[in-house]
Amino acid sequence: MAASAEEVRKSIKSYMLVFGALAVLTVITVAASWLKVSVALGIFIALVIASVKGSLVASVFMHLTGEKATLYWVLIISAFFFILLILIPVIQNSETAHLIDQVT
């Protein structure tokens, strides 16, 4: 929101903090890719870090924390449909697996 000048000045501080956090997390995500872990765990770590970075950007830079319920509802709906989209490969692969079962 940052309606008044005072609040804007205050939030500048948090912008700088988030900037630092994002930079550090970028280094961490690169470093984590060198860890000798399984592919699945590697993907999990990278996506968790990316999600943390993404939520920092959304909640602080995009001021999502100060918004009202209407916007949250819009975003919840899109998030739900986004998850559905991401499930397409799961659905598709269950189909393929079923076909492979039939062949073998």
Binding site: T26, A46, A50, G54, V57, F61
Partner: peptide, 14 residues
């Protein structure tokens, strides 16, 4: 920026 935050690990690190 947020999209890139996801694109970076997906294409360069995973």
């Amino acid at each position: 920026d947020l999209v890139w935050i996801f694109l970076f690990p997906v294409f360069y690190l995973l």
